[in-house]
Design a protein around this nucleic acid. Structure first.
Length: 513
RNA sequence: GGCGACGUAGCCAAGUGGUAAGGCGGAGCUCUGCAAAAGCUCUAUUCCCCAGUUCGAAUCUGGGCGUCGCCUCCA
């Protein structure tokens, strides 16, 4: 396969440095705030990349770190009076639950900065010994001018960075661009003992130390969001490569495009994002994955309600097509020939992924296959098509069999919904307690009484009542009283219940919210 | 000010020299008592604008206009 390499600014053929073993380090979460959709996009991409490398036959070691100590979680602890570890654990656990819902596979290693304090300190000592770092009053700093290639990854040079003027002057630093390797603790701050005094690692050094400890140097692929190119990855390179006889530290640097939310940049400082777990309550995680797959991973993308609704519809079509193929009766005598019929689809699918992970092109193949499902069933190719779809969707992290219904949300404008037909045969009343705003509580409908003229009269809970009305409509249909049947369906629709006739029977779902 | 992306139908989006994938939406049709779902057909003579290179350009070059990101915590 070919992959875009930020280091060389080119799409290049990808191959492991050693044998068939691919070593990947992806910058993970700093759990000092709830994870957002932008994190999900990035981690889902690297999840698909990893799955594809495994598919290609490589043995993959996937490391995703957790920067579990940083200034913001300390600030959050100070602000709330809680222990910083508790805050980090809360956000991290929430993140892990969301990743599971999005089918992101578990990393092979998930190292935490606080578990690698010793390795971090060793590296800092090596940097000091090599003349690349110095200890001063408030900590240890990396001497940026000691690394000739500083700025190579992000295409900057030190003198131009100076002109940028937004670099805060700091009396402790020899050069304003130098960055912290070790920060000495102020009173009441968490700290670890070190040769330079109690303190904590600066941001950047943990990744250099942990990637070296777990993957060795050089390793194959270092990933992260595009916003990490500078300064985070630039600084990692400076730290690691200053100590390496034969750079680079990572052969490929891969960066995912950033996500905007309703045309607004998402960032921790702006705090303008919806927590990921909330978004996953409102939208099918599989649809979110499909939506991201339909855009090139390096392109910036804008997430809107409209775009996720479109992807949800598309997902249903894809899953419906898969069901149709899987359930089609086999046509034995055509099997051999039909296997050949699937080959062009598979070829297109994998060719797309081979070219810098063109997931959008790959997904289009699945839609083509789905659209042709009836024809494939006819020609006896259904089982082969289903098998390929299963393989392809699984590779993309979409479960072909999972059917997550949209969470039920019921909110009505009024406390009493009435339907009365022109005639005498339908009286359908639903009465429920409401909140202060006059709306029904989400997820509950209490039907106190439903009279459906002649067919049903009952008191009871909402589900039973709706079932009864649906059954009444069904009987009306059998009696060829389509006028009544339609009025009953209309009555249900007016309270947000959609009734659908299907081959196997009648189903109803609650919509709205 | 510096660096870097991007601009393809109503919306999203693939495509980097050979004559515009796919998704959503929309229109018509088929099937259904009616709906829904599903399928079929149609929906960009054209890729922000101008100039150039070429037999040929959405794709390359130059210029212009516009949008956005990074340079400060960030996936």
């Amino acid at each position: 396969m070919r992959l875009y390499n930020t280091r060389t600014r080119k799409v290049e053929p990808f191959a492991p440095l050693r044998g068939d073993h691919v070593r990947i380090y992806v910058c993970g979460l700093t759990p000092s705030a709830e994870a957002h959709l932008g994190h999900a996009r990035s981690f889902m991409f690297f999840d698909v990349l990893r799955r594809y490398l495994v598919h290609l036959g490589y043995r993959v070691t996937f490391v995703e770190n957790v920067t579990d100590i940083d200034d913001r979680s300390i600030d959050a602890a100070k602000a709330t009076g809680r222990d910083w570890r508790e805050i980090v654990k809360g956000y991290f656990d929430s993140f892990k639950r969301s990743m599971a819902r999005l089918h992101v596979l578990e990393p092979d290693h998930e190292p935490r900065a606080t578990e690698y304090i010793a390795q971090i300190q060793v590296m800092i000592e090596e940097l000091i010994a090599g003349g690349h770092a110095y200890a001063v009053g408030d900590g240890v700093y990396f001497k940026v001018r000691s690394f000739a290639r500083y700025g190579a990854l992000s295409g900057r040079n030190l003198d131009e960075l100076m002109v940028g003027a937004r670099i805060a002057a700091d009396e402790n630093k020899e050069d304003p661009l130098d960055f912290a390797l070790w920060k000495l603790a102020k009173p009441d701050e968490p700290s670890w003992n070190s040769p330079w005094g109690p303190g904590r690692p600066g941001w950047h050094i943990e990744c250099s130390a942990m990637s070296r400890a777990l993957l060795g140097e050089p390793f194959d692929l270092h990933g992260g969001g595009y916003d990490l190119v500078f300064p985070h990855h630039e600084n990692e390179i400076a730290q690691s490569e200053s100590l390496m006889p034969a750079p680079p530290m990572a052969n490929f640097w891969v960066h995912g495009g950033l996500l905007q939310f309703d045309n607004r940049k998402m960032s921790k400082s702006l705090g303008n994002f919806e927590p990921l777990y909330e978004l996953l309550d409102r939208h099918d995680p599989q649809a979110i994955r499909l939506l991201f797959l339909q855009t090139g991973y390096r392109k910036p993308m804008n997430f809107t309600e409209e775009s996720i609704d479109g992807a949800t519809t598309g997902l249903h079509r894809l899953l419906g097509a898969y069901d149709a193929l899987r359930e089609a009766p086999p046509v034995k005598h055509l099997e051999a020939a039909s296997a050949v019929a699937i080959k062009p689809f598979a070829a297109r699918f994998y060719a797309a992924l081979d070219e810098d992970m063109n997931t959008s092109g790959a997904v289009s193949v699945l839609f083509d296959l789905g659209a042709g499902a009836p024809a494939l069933v006819q020609s006896g190719a259904a089982s082969h098509a289903a098998a390929f779809m299963h393989e392809a969707m699984t590779l993309l992290g979409i479960s072909p069999v999972e059917r997550s219904h949209r969470p039920v949300k019921v909110e009505y404008e009024t406390s009493v919904v009435r339907f009365e037909s022109g005639g005498s045969d339908v009286v359908f009343k639903i009465v429920a307690p409401t909140d202060a705003a006059g709306r029904l509580p989400v997820g509950t409908v209490d039907i106190l009484r439903a009279d459906v003229g002649g067919f049903v009269t009952l008191d009871g809970d909402a589900k039973a009542a709706v079932d009864a009305v649906v059954a009444a409509r069904h009987r009306a249909k059998l009696a060829k009283d389509f006028g009544l049947a339609d009025r009953l369906r209309g009555a249900l629709k007016s309270i947000g219940v959609v009734v659908t006739d299907e081959k196997e029977g009648v189903t109803w779902t609650v919509v709205g919210g």
